[in-house]
């Protein structure tokens, strides 16, 4: 499987934030998107997830997973944004159960996923009672309970301590070994083996 962007341009409000950007990333590869604040990292991820329209250029995918043959690019993505997409007054388990049912393609069970992110035993705790790092890990567990070949991660390790970060690196490594793709916008190294870097420049002419 290979995801390619051909000279894409994305607007944020009135400004072109991402302009004439091309890259490609294949199964088993991680693409680290770097660049200073405001360089358009989040904008690029949101565009791949279909949340922002492309002003120019195109995104193409080749050799999709047979389970996702009919799906759009966005539908093949897990998007981990700045927000955790969890409800404070539902328990961690209820939140994950909902996203598994909603997203389809079930992968790990809720308890297995919580075990993988080190939140075992917390499935019946209201999400609001978790600490910042635990919330982030619950959000990572959301990507494990249903399967998507492409992971779009926006500052995935924000709020995670070193141990959790390396645990998350192992999860990303496993996803890549299964033939997945990881595209991550980050300022910190993610401790992955097979990575490529994409550095976004802040556009000065707008």
């Amino acid at each position: 499987m290979k995801l390619a962007a051909n000279a894409i341009a994305v607007m944020r409000g009135e400004d072109i934030v991402v302009d004439a950007l091309s890259f490609d990333v294949a199964s088993g590869e991680a693409l680290l998107v770097k660049g200073e604040n405001g360089a358009g990292k989040s904008t690029m991820l949101r565009a791949i997830a279909g949340l922002l329209p492309l002003e120019a250029g195109s995104l193409t995918i080749e050799g999709s997973d047979p389970d996702f043959a009919e799906a759009t690019i966005a539908e093949q993505c897990h998007y981990l944004g700045h927000e955790n997409a969890m409800k404070g007054n539902l328990s961690v388990g209820e939140n994950l159960q909902f996203w598994q049912d909603f997203a389809g393609h079930p992968h790990l069970t809720i308890l297995e996923a919580l075990d993988m992110v080190g939140l075992d035993g917390l499935d019946s705790v209201p999400f609001a009672h978790l600490s910042t790092g635990q919330r982030r890990r619950a959000s990572i567990a959301r990507m494990l309970v249903s399967y998507r070949p492409i992971w779009l991660l926006d500052e995935p390790t924000a709020g995670l301590d070193d141990a959790s970060s390396s645990q998350f690196a192992a999860l990303m490594g496993a996803h890549l070994e299964d033939g997945g793709i990881v595209i991550a916008a980050t300022h910190v190294p993610l401790h992955l083996e097979k990575t490529r870097e994409l550095v976004l420049q802040t556009s000065t002419d707008t």
Binding site: G50, Y79, E83, A85, M86, F102, A103
Partner: peptide, 17 residues
Amino acid sequence: RDDAEDGSLDQMLIGQT
């Protein structure tokens, strides 16, 4: 509003439903 603020709406826009 609540879903937009906590990021759930993003997930609903991306999802297959």
